[in-house]
Amino acid sequence: MIVAEKKPIEEIIDYVKDFQKLLIAGCNECVTVCEAGGKKEVGILASALRMYFMNEGKKVDIDEVTLERQCDHEYLEEIRDRIDQYDAVLSLACGVGVQFMAEKYFSTPVFPGVNTCFMGAAEERGVWSERCQGCGQCILGKTAGICPISRCAKRLLNGPCGGSTKGKCEISKDLDCAWQLIIDRLKELDRFDEYEQIMPIKDWSTERAGGPRKVVREDVRL
């Protein structure tokens, strides 16, 4: 899932302080699971902002909505008939949702309520860590299911480097060396001989370095 963190309320207040009618829009997908922008967080933020503005003597109307997804036309369309009532939208979706909302409702200011962090997994309750950088050419089949692009600080394809000590990365004693994990798992899978195969230079053009990306699937297009 896409992992996000709540923005500080002060920053949000600064974005929306000059508007009189505000819609706070949550998203029922990733940001709900990582407890940053779901229905519950929308409620908390709306309540906090209402009290802030009331305490400041400002009259600000704040409405709440949580859409199934903010990265799909059909769900964003659900607010089309009432979007004109609002001076601004505060979207608690990931950066994708915020942008899609802004694209769709061109004349309404849209502000982000979360900081989108990465694609990751929930290691345990309250702990999320990065697992994928969307490089566009998955090599997990060759690396025992452990991604050196997202989990090695240097994104090495033929690791580990000299900074790997006792299974940990030199950038932090709390960070596992991805290549140590790969080696350990290859051994476990009885495929350690694959480690000896040198991986060729990766084509980074499918990664962000090649500019903004797009997937077009003619087979599923209408």
């Binding site: 500080p8 309320i9 002060e10 902002l49 009290m51 305490n55």
Partner: peptide, 8 residues
């Protein structure tokens, strides 16, 4: 924390 931030 929230109540401190919003001045309550």
């Amino acid at each position: 924390m929230i109540l401190d931030t919003i001045g309550i």
